[in-house]
Design a protein around this nucleic acid. Structure first.
Lengths: 338, 338
DNA sequence: TTGTAGGCGTTATCAT
DNA sequence: ATGATAACGCCTACAA
């Protein structure tokens, strides 16, 4: 049988109100009584029942986390950032994955709300309009990750995707590349992939290069998919001198396809990635990438949520964290004459 | 304001008891009344408060999951298996990571218990005696992952580590290798790494080979660590013809060290891994490995937990899932004469 | 400073 | 078949 506040009260010969006070407002209780109660609490090993507590307080010290996949390099590192800091605030997280299914997303939003989660950290690959609407209506704080959503009402943490893609393209250009393919992700409601595309385009145009649609392909975040895309390039005899993938996994898929077809990376084709998950520096050749501070994105999201829970909406609604370009082994100067 | 059962009762002009019945035991209510109530529920968008519910039922439909790391390939795939199946049982998971810290493990065990989790899925790198003891005392079901723990009282899911290591060593032996290094993990209280070591030893002895302690090193699951270990091998001029690593990440660390030192894999040195995380077939050369059914381990753990929650302890307490050896590109026949 | 009692939103046990 | 009402374990006015 679990020991309750009542047991403690009886044994300490006080009312349950006093015991409650000892726990929540110790200063309202005489030192003498407080000590006696504390002693009994200890002796009996009493721990307040959080369920009962949250029924009356309407708070759970629980934060819901909704992600598309759990077994994903990108997500994993963000999760670590979240989980690492959440406990210092004495919160716990309740987690689910949606596979990017929008109905699931809405369902879990509701479930977590019902479970009295005090806030929700939300992440998806493709933002859906209905989901945005649903989030806007929720009366607990929601923070989105990795989205510079155009809907300013929803707080978010991410990097500047436009600038990052711009810089990477510029880097390739400076290396002498002119045939630069872009393997990007499918379009969705917000500016995520679009921003990257714009950055790419802008860099090219500054070099007086027009976008060649043949070089632009849509992937779906998976390795196999980008592998196939590059195989298509090869089959179509369209061989860019550089391939810019908007995720590391896609970059690796591209490199594998190139290698498997006898092309040398980076000697013949440069391939660069985006995100800098750990795999990017484990793989050989190590990937040249745009580094996102994944761990920080997670911990900043937590801070934002907790600020909002506490009612201090002081901070920015849209947080842009710094990225950086890391040059490693998967890219080099173009051999082609310009 | 959230709509409660009371609101529904009033609007439908019945007692809250009836509303409750409509939700939990519809057959106890006249069809006519039931329909009216259902209508009001729909109209008002009423969703029962799970917190109040679990206060009286003493159940939360919550299962705690404790893992060492969240941003880990191995853990991630198991987590997916867990999360995938948990929702079909209408449970949710509450997650934390411990970094393998034993005090944290105990702390979270308690926290999840307090939060009324109905069961806990537990995973760690190194099993500690105190933790085992703590688990044994808990009065909610706990299932351990990846442990053939000697303490039969704790249910667990894993593969047969002894047999798997035996088979892998035998495979290497058959390929003509005689100098087979083993990079294993640190010892802990249970049979995990030990079983693997025994399997390795047994295979060798069947070939009349004595274990050469110089070839046995202790890693810590990290890539950097096994990288260093192999660098040490090279420095000490101890070059095995094959290296058996008890995790894929360590195998990749080993290959990287070899590559960076000018050795060819598998031409000069074969390297094999253990687990078969996705990375194992993404990396080049693709890793020869012992495949563990990670996703299944997760989902079986869930089934076991739920069985136990429902009181059917019918199934086995120790579940051993099948593994298999997958030969890929990181291993080949030994060039050395025997 | 401490105790009494009402309430949080359900479920479950009695009656009716 | 339905309705009162007492739990569930805790917090918090309000009283004393």
């Amino acid at each position: 049988m679990k020991v309750t506040i009542k047991d403690v009260a009886e044994k300490a010969d006080v009312s349950i109100a006093t015991v409650s006070r000892v726990i929540n407002n110790p200063h309202l209780v005489t030192e003498k009584v407080r000590e006696r109660v504390l002693e009994v609490i200890n002796e009996l090993g009493f721990r307040p029942n959080p369920v009962a507590r949250s029924l009356v307080m309407k708070k759970n010290r629980l934060i819901g986390v909704i992600v598309p996949e759990l077994s994903n390099f990108f997500v994993g590192e963000i999760m670590n950032g979240i989980d690492e800091i959440i406990h210092t605030h004495e919160y716990d997280i309740i987690v689910c994955h949606t596979r990017g299914d929008h109905e699931q997303e809405i369902r879990y939003l509701d479930i977590f709300y019902d479970k009295q989660a005090e806030g929700i950290i939300f992440m998806t690959w493709n933002l859906d309009n209905k989901v945005v609407e649903h989030i806007s209506k929720m009366d607990i704080p929601v923070v989105m990750i990795n989205r510079n959503t155009s809907n300013l009402a929803i707080p978010s943490v991410s990097i500047d995707n436009y600038k990052a893609a711009y810089e990477m393209t510029q880097y390739l250009l400076k290396k002498g590349h002119r045939k630069i393919a872009l393997i990007r992700n499918s379009i969705d409601v917000d500016a995520f992939g679009l921003e990257q595309y714009k950055g790419y385009k802008q860099a090219l145009s500054e070099y007086g290069i027009e976008v060649n649609e043949k070089y632009i392909r849509y992937g779906n975040f998976s390795m196999d998919n980008s592998y196939k895309i590059v195989m298509d390039f090869i089959e179509e005899k369209i061989i860019p001198t550089a391939i810019f993938c908007t995720s590391d996994i896609m970059a690796i898929g591209a490199i594998n396809a190139l290698k498997d077809s006898g092309y040398k990376v980076p000697e013949e084709v440069s391939v660069v990635g985006f995100n800098d998950v750990r795999l990017a520096s484990i793989y050989r050749p190590r990937l040249t990438v745009i580094h996102q501070p994944l761990f920080n994105i997670g911990s900043v999201a937590v801070k934002m949520i907790i600020d909002r829970i506490k009612g201090k909406n002081s901070g920015e609604n849209i947080v842009i964290l710094p990225h950086r370009l890391i040059e490693r082994e998967s890219s080099s100067s173009s051999r082609e004459e310009n």
